[in-house]
Deep mutational scan, measured.
Amino acid sequence: MQGVVKVNSALNMRSGPGSNYGVIGTLRNNDKVEIIKEVDGWYEIRFNGKVGSASKSYITIVN
């Protein structure tokens, strides 16, 4: 499943599904990500070869 980031500035990509996990990357508006699965309001995603988590509130699913 594919998604597109929708933010005003930037979205942190984290090492796990929650804001208490470390930041491993930064996503910008309109970045395209691969959604692997949903976990507690977060998506596990793949972006630029990295796997991490980002809040699903800022990612829109595209077909």
Rank of each mutant, 00 (worst) to 15 (best):
G3F: 05
D40P: 05
N30V: 02
V39S: 09
Y21G: 07
E34A: 08
E34C: 13
N12L: 13
K37T: 10
S15P: 01
N30H: 10
V4H: 06
N29V: 07
V39L: 11
V39Y: 12
E38G: 04
D40F: 08
W42R: 01
S15N: 09
Y58T: 08
E38K: 03
V51G: 05
F47E: 02
K56C: 08
V62P: 07
D31Q: 08
V33T: 00
Y43I: 03
L27I: 06
N20I: 08
V62L: 13
G3K: 02
Y43A: 00
D40Y: 07
L11V: 15
I36W: 05
N30L: 10
S9E: 13
I59D: 03
S19F: 15
I61C: 08
I45C: 03
A10E: 14
G3E: 02
D40G: 11
G16D: 00
D40W: 06
N48L: 09
S19T: 14
V39M: 10
N12K: 13
G49D: 10
K56Y: 01
Y21F: 13
R28T: 09
V4D: 02
I35T: 01
V62F: 08
V33H: 00
G49A: 05
N29I: 07
G25Y: 04
T60R: 11
S55N: 15
I36L: 14
D40M: 08
N30E: 10
E44G: 02
G49L: 04
G52R: 00
S53K: 05
P17T: 04
V7I: 11
K56H: 06
V62K: 05
T26V: 14
N12C: 14
G18E: 04
I45D: 00
G3T: 02
G41W: 05
Y21E: 05
S19A: 14
I61G: 03
R28E: 10
I45N: 00
V4Q: 08
I59A: 00
L11I: 15
V62Y: 08
V7L: 06
N48G: 11
Y58Q: 11
T26F: 09
K37Y: 08
Y58R: 09
V4A: 04
G22H: 13
I61N: 04
G52I: 03
N29E: 08
G41K: 05
A54V: 15
S57H: 14
S53W: 15
G41D: 11
S57N: 14
I36T: 07
N8S: 12
N8C: 15
S57G: 12
S15Q: 08
S9K: 14
R28C: 14
V33S: 01
W42S: 01
Y58F: 14
R46T: 08
N20E: 14
V7S: 13
I35M: 01
N48T: 05
M1N: 09
I24K: 01
I36V: 09
I24E: 04
I24C: 07
I59L: 03
I35S: 00
V4P: 02
T60E: 15
G16Y: 03
G49R: 04
V4F: 06
G49N: 09
A10S: 14
S55P: 15
K50A: 10
K37Q: 11
A10D: 12
K6F: 05
T26S: 09
R46Q: 09
N20G: 12
I59E: 03
V51P: 05
M13F: 10
D31N: 05
Y43H: 01
Y58E: 11
L27H: 01
K56G: 07
V33Y: 03
K37E: 07
Y43S: 01
L11C: 14
S19D: 15
Y43Q: 00
A54N: 02
V23D: 05
I45H: 00
A54S: 05
Y21K: 04
S9M: 11
L27Q: 01
T60W: 12
N20A: 10
K50V: 14
N29L: 08
I45M: 02
L27A: 03
G52T: 02
S19R: 13
K56F: 03
K37N: 12
G49P: 02
D40A: 08
Y43E: 00
S15Y: 06
I61F: 05
E38L: 08
R46I: 14
N20V: 06
K32G: 05
E34P: 01
V23N: 04
E38Y: 06
R14L: 12
G41C: 08
I36G: 02
S15R: 06
M1D: 06
I36P: 01
K50L: 15
G22K: 13
G22F: 08
G25D: 13
E34K: 06
I24H: 01
Q2R: 12
S19W: 15
Y43K: 00
W42I: 01
A10Q: 14
T26M: 11
F47H: 10
S9I: 12
K37W: 07
I35W: 01
G25M: 06
F47V: 10
N30T: 05
P17H: 05
N12I: 14
K6V: 12
N20L: 06
N30K: 08
F47A: 08
P17D: 03
I61T: 07
A10F: 15
R14S: 05
V7D: 04
I36D: 02
R14P: 03
N29M: 09
M1V: 13
N8I: 11
Q2A: 11
M1K: 12
A54F: 04
M1A: 10
G3C: 09
V62N: 07
S57M: 14
P17M: 05
G18I: 00
N63H: 13
N48R: 11
S55I: 14
K56W: 02
V5G: 04
V51T: 12
L11K: 10
Q2G: 07
G18M: 00
Y43G: 00
S9H: 14
F47K: 03
N8L: 10
G52F: 02
Y21L: 04
I35F: 02
K56S: 11
S19E: 15
G52V: 04
I24Y: 00
G3Y: 03
G49S: 06
I24F: 00
S53R: 05
N48C: 09
Y43R: 00
L27P: 01
E34F: 11
N12P: 15
A54I: 15
Q2F: 15
K50R: 11
S55A: 13
I45Q: 00
R28V: 11
G3A: 07
N63W: 09
G52E: 02
E44A: 04
M1S: 10
N30W: 09
E38T: 06
V4K: 07
I24W: 00
D31A: 07
S55E: 15
R28P: 03
L27W: 00
T60M: 12
E38A: 07
F47Q: 03
I24G: 02
N63E: 13
L27T: 01
M13N: 02
K50C: 10
P17W: 01
N8T: 13
P17K: 03
S53Q: 06
G18Y: 00
K56N: 06
Y43T: 00
L11E: 07
K6N: 11
V51A: 08
Y21T: 05
S19M: 15
I61A: 07
E44Y: 10
V39F: 11
N63P: 13
N8A: 12
V23Q: 05
G22N: 13
V23H: 05
V23T: 08
V23W: 06
V7Q: 03
T60G: 06
P17N: 07
D31V: 06
P17L: 04
E38M: 07
Y21R: 04
Y43L: 06
Q2D: 08
V33E: 01
K32N: 09
I59M: 00
N30P: 02
N30R: 07
S53C: 15
A10I: 15
R28M: 12
V62E: 11
K32P: 08
S53H: 15
I24L: 07
Q2H: 13
W42H: 02
D31C: 06
N63F: 09
P17R: 03
A54T: 07
G52M: 03
G25F: 04
K56V: 10
R28W: 07
S53D: 04
R46A: 09
Y43C: 03
I35H: 00
T60V: 14
S55V: 12
V33R: 00
S15T: 09
V39K: 08
S15A: 13
N12W: 07
Q2I: 15
Y43V: 04
G16E: 02
S55D: 15
R14Y: 15
Y21H: 09
A54L: 10
V51N: 08
S55M: 15
S53T: 10
S57L: 14
I59P: 04
W42T: 00
V7E: 03
K37A: 13
K32H: 12
G3V: 05
S53Y: 15
V39P: 01
S9R: 13
V5D: 02
Y21N: 06
G49F: 04
E44S: 04
D40H: 09
S15M: 08
F47M: 06
N20Q: 14
P17S: 05
D40C: 10
G22P: 15
M1W: 13
Q2Y: 15
R14W: 08
L27G: 01
V23E: 05
V33K: 00
I36Q: 04
W42K: 00
G18D: 06
V5R: 01
